[in-house]
């Protein structure tokens, strides 16, 4: 899968900017923005968590990206698929199934403490579909990859953003266009779930 940066950790991060100490503020702001946060220790735990979500959603079709870059994620995708659950990871498969998929799964590069946003690298078409078309979107985030604020986020971004498509997601899609009543899920997902991986020794999700 094409990306704005193949390896954000090596090329964009630096420990003075990206640090787990901003987690608390991140989590608080993300929740305020109606994001759901789930903690797991590793990808084994993550597999169980995702399975539970699929079960509760009664999801039949899942579209997922990031497996090519990360074997652990690839395994996760393999283990959640079953005869009754179609997990699409091929890009054309994703394109074909996106309009009817029940769940999209992708990865985030880092979180932003000040706002509760996650930064997503959506260079590839399938990465965008996964986050926008299904009613529920899960992103995996390394819990120690958090920057303090928008300013530091852009310091990180400016190191690698030469071309492509990327941005921030802060909670689910929302509108207040009718009587300023907040409603979720107008064009994009109505649920945005961040699965924070606590213990990821190699520091990378992909």
């Amino acid at each position: 899968m094409e990306k704005v940066c193949k390896d954000w950790v090596a090329e964009a991060f630096d420990s003075s900017l990206v640090n787990a100490c901003h987690w608390k503020e991140f989590a608080q702001n993300a929740k305020t923005a109606s994001a759901e946060i789930l903690h797991v220790q590793n990808f084994t735990e993550a597999t169980a968590t995702v399975s539970e979500i699929i079960h509760s959603l009664k999801a039949k079709t899942v579209i997922a990206v990031g497996g090519d870059e990360n074997p652990a994620l690839q395994n996760l995708y393999k283990s959640i698929s079953s005869p009754s659950i179609n997990v699409c990871t091929d890009k054309f498969d994703i394109a074909e199934n996106a309009p009817t998929a029940d769940l999209g799964i992708s990865t985030a590069e880092f979180g932003i403490g000040e706002t509760g946003s996650v930064c997503v690298d959506t260079y590839s078409y399938e990465a965008r579909l996964v986050g926008m078309l299904p009613p529920v979107h899960i992103v995996f985030l390394n819990a120690s990859h958090i920057v303090e604020n928008i300013t530091t986020a852009f310091q990180v971004i400016s190191r690698v953003f030469h071309k492509g498509h990327m941005g921030f997601i802060t909670g689910p899609s929302r509108t207040a266009d009718i009587e300023r009543v907040l409603s979720l899920g107008v064009h994009g997902p109505s649920r945005f779930i961040i699965i924070a991986i606590e213990n990821n020794p190699e520091g990378r999700l992909h």
Partner: peptide, 11 residues
């Protein structure tokens, strides 16, 4: 809001 739901950059 501290940030809108989506901030998208296209290049």
């Amino acid at each position: 809001q501290r940030m809108t739901s989506y901030m998208t950059m296209v290049d």
